[in-house]
Design a binder for these strands. Structure first.
Lengths: 194, 194
DNA sequence: GTCTATAGCCCGATAGAC
DNA sequence: GTCTATCGGGCTATAGAC
C-alpha cells in the first residue's frame, strides 16, 4: 500500500488518495493535515507546496473524482443504443462502483461538498446527471417512456437507484448491489416507463 | 425571534433550535459554541450546565427532531386505511415538512450524524422507515403491490420521494414540492404497484 | 441556574535549512 | 521539492463569582 515513491506525481497521487479516504471516513473537518501526513507518508511541507492549503487539496480530490466517474460513464454510453440500454448502463456503473470502490461513491453521493468547497455545484447537477435527464427526455419524446416532466422522471429513476446506493453505503443494506441490480432496475424502469 | 426568556425550559429550547439551524447550515464542526451563544442569547455557562458538552447538545437536537417527525407520521397514519393511503400519507408528510421546515428535513436527510454522534442508527433504519417497509410488505402480501422483496420495494418507493426532497433541499429543484406531489407519488407508486 | 474569564489544546499555515 | 520546527489563533471545556 505504502510503497516508497520517488516520482513527485506519485507523491501527489498518494496524498490525494489518502485524503479522499480520510475525508470520506471521518469527514473533512475531522481530518487534520498532520493525519494526512502520517497516513500518506508525505511531509507537511510537500503537501503545502503542491496544494497551497487544505482546501486546495480538497479541490484536487473533488476534480479528479468527478472526472473519473464522467469518463467511465461516457465510455459505457458509447456502446449503447436504446433508451433502456443507456439507463441500464448508468444503473450498472453506479452499482458496480459502489460495490468495488465504495469510498469513491460515498465521496460523490454522501459528502456535503459545500461545507468545505465553495462554488462547486451539487454532484447531481453535474454532467452525468444532466445526461441522464437528456436520455429520459428523449425517451419521453419517443413514447418509450410515460409522458410528463423529464426532470421529475429523472428524479424518480435516479431516486430508486441512488437510494439503494445510499442505504448500502450507510450499512443498512447488507448484500452486494450486484445481486439486486436487475430487481432494482425493474423498479426504476417501472417508475417511468409508458 | 429572540424574545427575552425567563423560563429555563424556554432557554433550553431556544438553544436547541438555534443549534439545529446552525448545524444544518454550516455543518456541526463549523459551528462553535461561542457562535451558538451569540445567536441564541444564552451564555456558554448555561449551555454547558444543561447539555454537558457540545455532543450532548447535538444529542438533544437529534432526539427531539426524530421524535417530532415520528409523532406527526403516526398521527397521520391513524386516519388511513388502504396501503395506498398510508404510503400517500408518508409522501405528503415528507413533502410538506420539506416545504415548511426545510431545516428539519435537511437535518434528518442530509446530515451525516455518525460524524458527530456515536451510536445513532442511520435515520433510514428508524421507526418511520421501518413502518413504511411494513406497509409495503402488507401490500405485497395482499397483492396490491408487485411481488418481490419488500425491502427493495421500500427502497424504490422512498427513493423516488426522498430524491426529490434531496434535490429540493440542495437547491437543484426550484419549485415547491407541494406542486409536484401528485406527479411524484405516481412515479413512486408505479415503481412498486402490481 | 446563569454568568464571565480563562486554561489548555490542537490546528492550519509559515519559515527556512537542506 | 522536501523536510522539521514553530507560531498564532480559535476551539472546547472548566473555574468560580453571583
Amino acid at each position: 500500500m505504502k510503497r516508497r515513491e520517488i516520482n513527485p506525481q506519485q507523491k501527489v497521487a498518494q496524498v490525494v488518495q489518502t485524503a479522499r479516504s480520510l475525508f470520506v471516513t471521518n469527514g473533512y473537518h475531522n481530518v487534520s493535515i498532520p493525519q494526512i501526513v502520517s497516513e500518506s507518508g508525505v511531509s507537511i511541507g510537500a503537501i503545502y507546496h503542491h496544494f497551497g492549503n487544505k482546501q486546495g487539496l480538497a479541490k484536487s480530490v473533488h476534480d479528479l473524482t468527478l472526472q473519473q466517474f464522467q469518463d467511465w460513464f461516457n465510455q459505457r454510453l458509447a456502446s449503447c443504443q436504446s433508451v433502456r440500454e443507456k439507463l441500464r448502463a448508468f444503473s450498472d456503473l453506479v452499482l458496480e462502483v459502489t460495490d468495488q470502490d465504495p469510498e469513491m461513491m460515498e465521496y460523490m453521493l454522501l459528502m456535503k461538498h459545500g461545507e468545505f468547497l465553495s462554488d462547486v455545484p451539487p454532484i447531481c447537477s453535474t454532467e452525468p446527471f444532466r445526461q441522464v435527464q437528456e436520455i429520459i427526455g428523449a425517451g419521453i419524446a419517443g413514447q418509450t417512456l410515460k409522458e410528463g416532466d423529464s426532470f421529475l422522471a429523472a428524479v424518480a429513476f435516479t431516486g430508486v437507484i441512488l437510494r439503494a446506493v445510499e442505504l448500502r453505503l450507510m450499512g443498512v443494506m447488507k448484500q452486494k448491489l450486484a445481486k439486486v441490480g436487475d430487481n432494482l432496475f425493474d423498479h426504476a424502469w417501472a417508475s417511468i416507463s409508458a
